[in-house]
Design a protein around this nucleic acid. Sequence first.
DNA 1: TCTAAGTCGATCAAACATATAGGGAAAGTG
DNA 2: CACTTTCCCTATATGTTTGATCGACTTAGA
Lengths: 157, 157
Amino acid sequence: MYVTARTTYAMRALVAMAAAGPATVSAPALAEAERMPFNFLQTVLGDLRRARLVVSQRGNDGGYRLARPATEITVGEVVRAMDTSFASPREEAGRPADAAPHLQELWHAADTALRWVLDETTLEDLTRRRLPAHVQALAGMARDAGGPNTRITIVKD
Amino acid sequence: MYVTARTTYAMRALVAMAAAGPATVSAPALAEAERMPFNFLQTVLGDLRRARLVVSQRGNDGGYRLARPATEITVGEVVRAMDTSFASPREEAGRPADAAPHLQELWHAADTALRWVLDETTLEDLTRRRLPAHVQALAGMARDAGGPNTRITIVKD
DNA sequence: TCTAAGTCGATCAAACATATAGGGAAAGTG
DNA sequence: CACTTTCCCTATATGTTTGATCGACTTAGA
């Protein structure tokens, strides 16, 4: 229940591409700018390409760029593409337990809450540094909550 | 980014205990009722005990019971106690990336959204089968969303 | 043709998730 | 006390994921 390094690397690379506009950005340039291990970043970029979130250009002056406008790529989409834990073999394990029939409903609610944030924030929002209003509000709540309580942390980066 | 089997086993066991009221429930009884692998459940119950969410009683007619009223134990608390992925070595990896300074804020918002669901639902809510209003609303959204879109699935069970 | 750059696949160690097994310790019961 | 029930702890096994590295191959442009 956390965002993996893979995913944050992917997000950072994508935001960098969004910032570069229509120009291609080479993998070495991305690794340099974001201080990511180059070889690892390459495999991440390969995943992004196969997920059709970016397109690549080989040869001299090649590199990567977004496959679609930054306004049309949501964070949720990226997370789903990168995080292999989705639809994992663990998924189909249990039948709905008799003693806790409402657990399903609760997990669905949590799922929806998460999508409410991640599927409504685009790469453009991140580059323009203007998150959707409700996302900003939630982030504000997190800041103000104060106390050093343990928390559910899907936070990463 | 999914709820582990450990956590759902824990939740199911806890809901069963909440339903049993002040009486103790033995590990074999829980394993039977919930169809969980007995040996594995034992290690889960040990974790719950060390997290002081349940208390145990040995000997004849012993077993486990909630350490506090079901109204005072939230799902978020249980998830935090069970999911070892929190505060993992992955946590401290990266400094806030230059190119994506708002990513942090976004993850915080997602975190808050999740807690908004999980920290406001208690074991009592689950046994009484009456989830908080906003949680019900979110669950409803999930049902109505319809389409066979891929989704962020922290759903498990 | 030369070469910079992306592409692909193999490999690897460490951690984690999901179990299974078994021996020991404690708390009641007869 | 002996006995049973039940919890307690630790070790082992297996498969998957994560994070990372390396090297050989292919493509596109100068």
